[in-house]
């Protein structure tokens, strides 16, 4: 959600008062959003931009789909039993020097 000060002021005027929010999010902004790399303020600004622009929503959606698909391709490796060689290596060998 928007920070308290700006809640209820979703209009373009308020957005313009804040220099950054009037700028169309770049591709780097969108992926930082998807990757959880934004601070709360910038995140709220991107959210606002997403609400207004279906094209941006579409890009974010694709990045999220990509991310989930990549997990589905490789997550199987997390649960596979260890191959014998690896199991042997880690079994009861705390000292290797």
């Amino acid at each position: 959600m928007l920070p308290g000060l700006r809640s209820g002021s979703m209009g373009a005027e308020m957005a313009k008062k804040n220099g950054r929010s009037s700028r169309r999010p770049s591709d780097l902004d969108l992926q930082a959003y998807v990757d959880g790399e934004l601070d709360a303020e910038r995140r709220a600004e991107i959210k606002l931009a997403l609400r207004r622009d279906p094209a941006l929503r579409d890009i974010v959606h694709r990045y999220e789909v990509q991310k989930r698909a990549i997990h589905r391709i490789f997550d199987g490796a997390l649960d596979e039993p260890l191959p014998e060689r690896l199991a042997k290596l880690i079994k009861g060998k705390p000292r290797l020097n």
Binding site: I70, F74, D75, A77, L78, D79, E80, L82, L86, I90
Partner: peptide, 13 residues
Amino acid sequence: VRELPYLRRFARA
């Protein structure tokens, strides 16, 4: 040893 699953996934990727 606890990190092994993640190492395996990363290597696979």
